[in-house]
């Protein structure tokens, strides 16, 4: 398994953990309220910091597992995989954001719109890493 495929696995798992953390926290904050809890800056900051720290730790561990491949730049296959996965992520992001905006037009719930847009960003990233893994495994 190449460094970039391992990286996709690590980032995918981190994104799943990050999504679970964010939406469990929002759900807990919304308990007792009649609506979705408003977005709060500290939660977003904690989410971003945790994702960055975990991704650094993850990539250090990958590098230690095979130091000879750690500094390898993307070759032509890696670039093709990244481009095709990026296309899928862009599609997911576009459809997701349009859906979130469409729902807003019916609910006028700005808090829900923020969480939905933030969630779509996470899902599109997750889709990109998942697509990379599929392309690496099944062929591109």
């Amino acid at each position: 398994m190449s460094f970039h495929e391992k990286s996709a696995w690590v980032m995918g798992l981190i994104m799943v953990a990050g999504m679970a953390f964010y939406f469990r926290t929002v759900a807990a904050m919304s308990e007792g309220l009649d609506a979705v809890a408003p977005p709060v800056l500290p939660l977003v900051i904690v989410y971003v910091v945790v994702i960055v720290v975990l991704s650094i730790i993850g990539h250090i561990l990958i590098a230690f597992s095979k130091p000879s491949e750690a500094d390898g730049a993307m070759d032509e296959r890696d670039k093709l995989v990244a481009a095709r996965a990026g296309n899928i992520a862009g599609l997911v992001l576009g459809v997701g954001l349009i859906s979130a905006l469409g729902i807003y037009l019916f609910t006028y719930d700005g808090n829900q719109l923020f969480h939905a847009a933030f969630g779509v960003l996470m899902i599109s990233q997750l889709a990109e890493y998942a697509a990379r893994i599929v392309y690496y495994r099944a062929g591109v």
Partner: peptide, 10 residues
Amino acid sequence: IGVTRQTIIA
């Protein structure tokens, strides 16, 4: 040829 071992395997 300037690619990784994994690309040769693929």
